[in-house]
């Protein structure tokens, strides 16, 4: 067992079904599909042996639910975009990792459970991501839910538990967050050709967030989560959580190579495909000076954090 897990890459991808079901109906949806395809190819070329998904479209109430069915099979239809078509799926899940992740959650004080039921409704976002990123099920996957009541501390501990399980099993993981940037959609049906970001304000915030991603400043985005929630997120849930979880799972620092592969409107929402790869070079000007404090050790060696 290694102390730190090996994160091969992190991906931030949108949950909407359009890139999967209708990439030809809008040029932007097509570009998102191409970006997904690029990520698929990069995953195939990597030596990753686990895809771990945190999906904002899988809500949970009893703590955190972790998909552990070895081969979930079903045909899913989206609640809103059912007219775009059905999504038949058959996935390969890493049951061993799911159980280890659940145990790690409990060891860190979280309520968690695995779910393994035929016909369990895997959410649209997870299905889109897995079908596009791992269509042949080459790499086993795992999906964790987004608890509707959880907030920052709980999300960060959830990310640390994900790392514990990766380290324990020696996994090389692709960490995937399924979430929009701005998530306000148009409330009426639109001509696909006329899709655009819902407002200039949403677009400006999205562009700024993308700058951070492109710089690899994931921990800084995590720190901005409450602002992001208040500015460009519809108040479906209490907080914008995916960046907290992603940052915690990937190591709570800023030292990544960031690449925005696509950014487009999805019925008004901001959809982006972004890759973060842990960097091996200099931190440069991206030092991060807030340690994850659990015990005070005196002066901090801020430039050590995130160094690989």
């Amino acid at each position: 067992m290694s102390e730190e897990p090996e994160i091969v890459m992190g991906l931030y991808v949108p949950p909407h079904p359009h890139p999967l079901l209708a990439p030809d109906q809008n040029e932007g949806w097509g570009r998102l599909r191409e970006a997904y395809d690029t990520c698929r190819q990069r995953i195939e070329e990597s030596d990753a042996d686990l895809i771990l998904i945190y999906s904002t479209t899988w809500p949970s109430i009893i703590g955190h639910q972790i998909q552990a069915h070895p081969k979930p099979v079903f045909t899913h239809v989206d609640d809103d975009f059912h007219f775009l078509g059905s999504m038949p799926y058959e996935f390969r899940m890493d049951t061993e990792y799911a159980e280890s992740f659940k145990d790690a959650c409990e060891e860190r004080g979280l309520q968690a459970r695995t779910v393994s039921y035929d016909g369990f409704p895997i959410d649209t976002g997870s299905i889109v991501a897995l079908k596009l990123l791992n269509p042949e099920n080459r790499i086993p996957a795992c999906i964790v839910s987004s608890n509707v009541y959880s907030n920052r501390a709980e999300q960060i501990v959830l990310g640390k538990a994900a790392r514990d399980a990766m380290a324990k099993l020696g996994k090389k993981a692709v960490v995937v967050v399924v979430a929009s940037l701005s998530n306000r959609m148009f409330t009426e049906h639109i001509d696909p050709a006329e899709d655009r970001i819902h407002s200039a304000k949403d677009d400006e915030w999205n562009q700024k967030i993308l700058e951070f991603f492109a710089d690899g400043r994931l921990e800084d985005i995590s720190q901005l989560s409450r602002d992001i929630q208040s500015q460009i997120r519809v108040s479906k849930v209490v907080a914008y959580k995916p960046a907290w979880w992603m940052a915690a799972t990937m190591g709570q620092h800023n030292n990544y190579h960031g690449e925005v592969l696509a950014y487009e409107a999805l019925h008004g929402a901001g959809g982006a495909v972004i890759q973060l790869t842990p960097a091996k070079g200099s931190i440069g000007d991206k030092e991060f000076d807030e340690d994850d404090v659990e015990f005070y050790h005196g002066d901090r060696h801020v430039l050590d954090k995130g160094s690989l």
Partner: peptide, 10 residues
């Protein structure tokens, strides 16, 4: 006709 599995309380 189908099976309905509760996503919260399966």
């Amino acid at each position: 006709q189908n099976i309905s599995v509760d996503p919260i309380f399966p």
